[in-house]
């Protein structure tokens, strides 16, 4: 599904002394099938932005278009429920939302609310459980007896069981250990490819954005600060530092390397093996070859 924001403003507690503008004249377009990373420091408007995508909030001004659904201040779509069945949101620490007696019931909760019939839900659960890295032995267990990482997988399975077209991920790896982080991101990425999803990843990790996204949007003070392909955006060190963001480590290193050796190795998203070869050529003094 294509997603378009057009001059969106969002004000919390409008017409009160506590009014606060969280989104400020924000416009962007995300074509269907892309993997977009949304980056910005705490308080830059990332979470408010994603709440617009499934109509949890509607713009105070401007319009949000998600596929054929149009959301404005005066015009909420009549079929909001359908919109929500097509936009799957994995909130931060989604394991806090688990509540059912068994893993199976918890995963079934979402699709049941969207009137998917019981047989079909069973089929989906058996398909999704291995995808999120769990086995069917877990289905009859209480989600509260699982480890944090396993609980998160159950919560994610619950979102996937609705079969959304758009997957919105709000810091999905926060608090996991390195192996867990890698596994979860890998899972989202292969699902994105296989099921032709549109994926929106809200993250603090420049490394993940560089690895998975084909487009990044940098937010600052509720508005778009930069936008483009990761390898174009992430080399702009000064601009990123101005909004308290760092460049990915590989780019930091190449930058320091250039200062020391007075020879640039341009970053083009090449592999670490290729970077090592370029460094060797400079160090051994045959950069021209």
């Amino acid at each position: 599904m294509d997603i378009t924001f057009k001059n969106v403003n969002y004000i919390y507690q409008q017409n009160s002394p506590f009014a606060h503008k969280a989104i400020d004249d924000l416009s962007f377009h995300i074509p269907s099938g892309s993997f977009v990373a949304i980056i910005g420091h705490t308080g830059s408007g990332k979470s408010t932005l994603i709440q617009h995508l499934n109509g949890l909030v509607v713009p105070s001004e401007g319009e949000v278009r998600v596929g054929d659904f149009l959301l404005t201040k005066d015009k909420k779509p009549k079929n909001m429920k359908e919109l929500r069945s097509r936009i799957g949101v994995v909130f931060q620490y989604p394991e806090h939302q688990l509540f059912e007696e068994t893993v199976e019931k918890d995963i079934a909760f979402g699709p049941t609310n969207f009137h998917v019939d019981a047989e079909e839900i069973k089929r989906r659960i058996h398909e999704i459980v291995p995808l999120v890295g769990l086995s069917s032995d877990f289905l009859k267990r209480s989600p509260f007896d699982l480890s944090g990482g396993q609980m998160r997988r159950v919560a994610i399975a619950g979102v996937l069981a609705v079969r959304p077209d758009v997957l919105v991920l709000d810091e999905p790896t926060a608090g996991l250990d390195p192996r867990g982080q890698k596994e979860i991101m890998h899972m989202f990425y292969s699902m994105h490819k296989q099921q032709n999803l549109t994926t929106i990843l809200v993250t603090h990790s420049m490394e993940d954005a560089l690895k998975y996204a084909d487009h990044v949007i940098i937010l600052n003070k509720g508005t778009k600060y930069m936008e483009g392909r990761p390898e174009e955006v992430f080399i702009q060190k000064e601009a990123l530092h101005r909004v308290q963001l760092d460049v990915p480590e590989v780019i930091q290193f190449l930058d320091q390397f250039e200062k020391k050796f007075n020879q640039p190795i341009p970053f083009m998203r090449q592999s670490i093996v290729d970077i090592a070869k370029s460094i060797r050529n400079v160090v051994k003094g045959d950069a021209s070859k």
Binding site: E249, F253, I272, I275, A276, I279, R280
Partner: peptide
């Protein structure tokens, strides 16, 4: 860490 991976690749590349 990144720096460890890079050091290994540099060794492979003959540094």
């Amino acid at each position: 860490p990144f720096i460890g991976i890079l050091a290994d690749e540099l060794k492979h590349a003959g540094i």
